[in-house]
Structure formats: C-alpha cells, structure tokens
C-alpha cells in the first residue's frame, strides 16, 4: 500500500495484530476483527456484484446506452426472471418456485463441468501420458516408466467395484503410495511459499506500520 494514508496504515496494523492474536487463543480483539471483517467484506462483495453483474452485465446488456451501437441482448432477461424466482423464497405461499433457478443452475453446472473435465482432465491427461517408455538416458527411461506405471496404479487405487486384493490389491497399494508421494511433494513445495506470506506480513508490521507509527506520534 504505497499510497495509503497514515490512518489507513495504522488501522491495517491493528487489524493484523488482532488476527494474529487468535494464535494465542480466541479473544475479544480477534472477535472485533472477525466482526469487522464479516460486515465489511459481505457489503464489499454485495456492492461489487451489484455493479458488475446486475448493472454492467444485465442492465447495460438489455438497455445498452444510446449511440453505443450495441444491440440489446434480450436473452439476458432469462437470468433476471430466474433471479426473481429465487426471491420467491421470501413469500411462503410460492417459495417452492425458488427451486426452479436452483434446478437450472445445478443442471447447467453439471453439463458444463462434465464437458470441461472430460476434455481438460481426462482426454488431456491421457494424451500427455502417451510417451515413449524408452528414452535417451537410463534416468529418463526410469522416469517414463514411473509416470506410466504410477498413473495406472493410481487409477487402480480408485477402482470402486473390485476388491483390492491379490495382484490387483498390490497394484492399488503401489497406487496409494504414488498418491502419497504426490501429496508429500505438494506439501513440501508449499511450505516455503507459506513462510513467505508470513514474512510479507511481518515486513508490513515492522517496516510500514512501525515507521508510520513513529511518524504519527
């Protein structure tokens, strides 16, 4: 926050300390920070959605400004009607109507994700795994075998309708180890980046905030 006001930095520092106090135990200062956070952020997103979705996407879509040359998108009314049905929830007699927009969203999400993941996850990953097993060096060859066998045994672990015993069970066991190596790798990889988050916050407290504090008083 290079251009933040001294008061802004001062408040930011207090709130930072308030959140950190939770590490010791739940306390009134944390509760105040939490309460402010909930109130302010809920309103923040309410306003953000109001202007970005309702005003910019819907309103300017169906009533484009004169002279902009954009045609009114009448299909957008569908969204508004579904949205209005959502509000029927507040009227006891017709609150069952609110299930319609919900049904719409659930259906649309199911359809969208089915295709998205089929292409980007299933097809793409299968395609990327089709690599020559024998490579230029022994190490690379070992790597190719690891990827192919690891992927296949990992998939075997996920089998639901076949009991994990015998050779199949052995393969599933290798599969879960492959998954555990993967989790360990992500875990180890993330530790440092999380530390840097804390360092960033400490830097704010000890530099920006402390300096500002000195200047204010």
């Amino acid at each position: 926050m290079p251009d933040a006001s001294p008061i802004g930095i001062f408040i930011a520092g207090l709130l930072t300390l308030g959140i950190f106090s939770f590490l010791y135990k739940d306390n009134p200062v944390y509760k105040v920070c939490e309460a402010i956070f909930i109130g302010v952020s809920a309103a923040y997103w309410a306003v953000e959605y109001f202007y970005s979705a309702l005003y910019r996407k819907f309103w300017l879509g169906v009533f484009p400004p004169a002279g902009s040359g954009v045609e009114a998108d009448l299909l957008l009314w569908g969204g508004a009607i579904l949205g209005a049905l959502m509000l029927c929830r507040m009227i006891p007699k017709i609150n069952w109507l609110s299930r319609w927009p919900l049904a719409f969203i659930v259906g649309a999400t199911a359809g969208l994700y089915m295709m998205l993941f089929f292409v980007s996850n299933a097809m793409k990953q299968i395609e990327s795994t089709m690599q020559p097993l024998i490579q230029d060096s022994l190490l690379e060859t070992l790597g190719s075998f690891t990827i192919a066998i690891g992927t296949i045994t990992g998939l075997i672990y996920f089998f639901f309708s076949k009991e994990h015993k015998g050779i199949f069970g052995g393969a599933a066991k290798v599969g879960i180890w492959v998954l555990m190596v993967t989790f360990g790798a992500s875990f180890g990889y993330t530790v440092m980046s999380r530390m840097s988050l804390l360092i960033g916050r400490m830097d704010f407290l000890f530099n920006s905030w402390a300096t500002n504090f000195g200047q204010m008083f």
């Binding site: 920070c33 939490e34 952020s41 809920a42 309410a46």
Partner: peptide
C-alpha cells in the same frame, strides 16, 4: 457468512 474467502475462514475459526 460472507463472500470473502478469508473473512469466511475467520468466521468459521470463531
């Protein structure tokens, strides 16, 4: 609670 990711987390922690 709130649409804010970490605001929500703060509340759930509470």
């Amino acid at each position: 609670v709130t649409d804010e990711q970490f605001g929500y987390v703060a509340a759930v922690n509470g």
